[in-house]
Simulated assay, not measured.
Amino acid sequence: MSGMNGIEPGSGTGYVSGWISRCGSRVTAIVVSIVQLATARELAAEHRADITFIEGNAEATGLPDVSFDFAISEYGASIWCPPDRWLPEDWRLLRTGGWLVFLGNHALSLICSPLDVSPTEWMMHRPYRGMRGADRTEIE
């Protein structure tokens, strides 16, 4: 990862971006929540991580085409954004031969999570059919 350009769409507090930065990558983190953005900037400063933070939407970053060697989403855009929106955006941002790495939950864990972000329950809180991610942009 050393010397590579990476992007973390939906980085939240930026802990993955911090790890990538410590591996020697130049990192751009996209954060939709201003509260998480403030925390991410504080943590990056505390740990001296060189990260470019952008308040924005992982589905439409506004960044130039073919700008990154890899995109990584650990419980970020890969679980909150509709796949037909964030995947084409990451594809557009990646250079030829670039890597897309993501980690998320099974859809069942999302549909059994209450809308108020409290712990997963034994009942469904949203339908499985037609599910396109779990939008929590209204929750801070």
Rank of each mutant, 00 (worst) to 15 (best):
S67Y: 04
V27D: 04
A60E: 15
A45G: 10
T39P: 00
A40D: 05
T52D: 14
A38E: 12
A71E: 11
D50K: 11
F70N: 02
R48I: 15
G18D: 07
S21Q: 04
G24E: 01
R26Y: 10
S33K: 03
E46D: 14
S33D: 03
H47G: 14
E59T: 10
I51C: 11
D50C: 06
T52H: 12
S21F: 00
D50V: 05
V35G: 08
R48G: 13
G56W: 07
V27Y: 05
D50L: 05
R48P: 13
A38H: 11
V27R: 04
A29Y: 03
D69E: 14
L43A: 09
S73N: 06
C23W: 08
V31H: 00
E74R: 14
E55N: 15
I34W: 01
T61W: 03
A29V: 05
S73C: 04
Y75K: 06
R48N: 15
A45R: 12
A71L: 09
A29D: 02
S67R: 02
L63G: 08
G18Q: 10
L37E: 00
A71R: 05
T28V: 14
G62D: 09
C23K: 13
T28M: 01
S33Y: 02
E55V: 13
T52R: 12
A58D: 01
T61P: 00
A40P: 00
G62V: 11
V27C: 07
D65S: 14
R41M: 14
S67H: 02
G56K: 05
V27S: 05
S21T: 06
L37S: 01
L37R: 00
P64L: 13
V32W: 08
G56N: 10
V27T: 04
N57Q: 10
V35L: 11
E55A: 15
S33I: 04
S73I: 02
A29P: 01
T28G: 05
L63W: 08
V27A: 06
R26L: 11
I72S: 07
W19L: 13
G24K: 02
S73G: 08
F68P: 00
V31Q: 02
P64G: 10
G62A: 12
D69L: 10
A49C: 15
S67E: 08
Q36N: 11
N57I: 08
G62W: 14
E42L: 13
G56R: 04
F53V: 06
A58Y: 00
D69N: 14
N57M: 09
S21K: 03
T28R: 08
A60P: 03
T28S: 02
N57H: 13
I54D: 04
A45K: 11
A60K: 15
F70T: 00
S33Q: 03
H47M: 11
E59A: 09
I54S: 05
G18P: 02
A38F: 03
E55W: 13
F70E: 01
E42G: 09
A49N: 15
